[in-house]
């Protein structure tokens, strides 16, 4: 297992490096740079005549005149060695300050959503497969189609309405008023958890619907395996049998797509965030792109892709543990 882990870890590091190159290239693709944008902002409407030389001077000030390769190493070096994501030009402060809290909030929502998705969909999918063809199974199938068909923002609106009516939850945001600007404390974390569940439910909804069907399908296959009948013929108690033999292999496709789920949740986040009044990274990413504020955009993209690559690494390890044939390479 140690060798397998080290191999996968090395793979992860290499992937992250390649990803950082790609993210940097993506930052370079839009025409123009922040120097143009800055000049336009500062002088438009003032009647000052801006020359190429002025823009060039700004570019030099910002360090954007350096060759691309140099700027890449400067950028990635800062991140790897000092945890410094550079300057957020449009905000005239460091990127770390701009994205700071939002990173943790986004990570919190992502993690809560993933956890909720798997905690619900895996047992329910297993149950549906075991009770295949029953009323409960058909009911779950209907729910799944509903879950996949319902747009998230609509669900968010409906959930907000009922959460407010029944539980008296404040509408929107991740914090109550008294905690919004308070320093982090246990009470503030609890306050966040109370707000977080709503976002997690909304974001997990379609993933749950989808993964229930995945687990149900693979579990149905696994239940028909001879090894399951053979174990049953040896008198293994039914619940232990289900968990030990078919379920362990049935969750394989769910585990192997953890990285995809992270990406999907992040993509759905901005729309839901607008409805629920959350301050998260997706919205900021869009704004940063519009401003050509490439350090902010790059930091967000890099963090997101790192999160996906890291989750893939975790899912590889989990798969290796679930099915030893994977780490033995057969």
């Amino acid at each position: 297992m140690l060798r397998f882990t080290l191999e996968r870890f090395a793979g992860m590091v290499v992937t992250m490096l390649l990803v950082s190159v790609m993210v940097f290239l993506i930052m370079e693709i839009p025409p123009g740079d922040y120097a143009d944008r800055y000049a336009f902002r500062k002088y438009s409407g003032t009647g000052v005549n801006v020359t190429e030389a002025d823009i060039e001077a700004i570019r030099r000030d910002l360090g954007l005149d350096q060759p691309m390769l140099l700027r890449y190493f400067d950028w990635i070096g800062g991140i790897v060695l000092r945890g410094d994501f550079g300057q957020a030009f449009a905000f005239e402060t460091s990127v770390a300050k701009v994205i700071g809290d939002k990173v943790w909030l986004t990570a919190g929502i992502l993690f809560a959503t993933l956890l909720l998705t798997y905690l619900v969909s895996i047992p329910v999918g297993i149950y549906a497969a075991v009770r295949r063809g029953s009323a409960v199974d058909y009911g779950l199938t209907v729910f799944s189609y509903l879950g996949l068909a319902l747009p998230n923002f609509l669900l968010a609106l409906v959930m907000l309405y009922f959460a407010n009516r029944w539980f008296g939850a404040d509408i929107g945001g991740l914090f109550s008023d008294q905690y919004r600007d308070a320093p982090w404390s246990l009470a503030k974390a609890w306050d966040m958890a109370k707000h977080l569940w709503l976002s997690a439910v909304v974001l997990a909804w379609s993933a749950v619907a989808y993964q229930i069907q995945t687990v149900r399908a693979t579990m149905s296959d696994e239940l028909n395996k001879l090894s399951v009948t053979a174990a049953r013929a040896r008198g293994v108690p039914e619940l232990k049998l289900l968990v030990k033999y078919p379920a362990r292999l049935a969750i394989n496709p769910v585990v192997s797509t953890i990285g995809f789920d992270v990406n999907r949740i992040f993509s759905e986040l901005p729309i839901v965030a607008v409805v629920l009044g959350l301050t998260e990274l997706g919205e900021l990413l869009l704004k940063a792109y519009l401003d050509l504020d490439m350090n902010v955009a790059g930091a967000i993209l890099l963090l997101l892709t790192f999160a996906i690559v890291f989750m893939n690494f975790l899912s590889d390890l989990l798969l290796g543990w679930l099915d030893p044939r994977i780490k033995l390479g057969v």
Binding site: L226, S227, L322, D323, R325
Partner: peptide, 12 residues
Amino acid sequence: FQEPMASFSPVY
């Protein structure tokens, strides 16, 4: 059973 490979679980 007939299939010795299939009657063992492959992951234990």
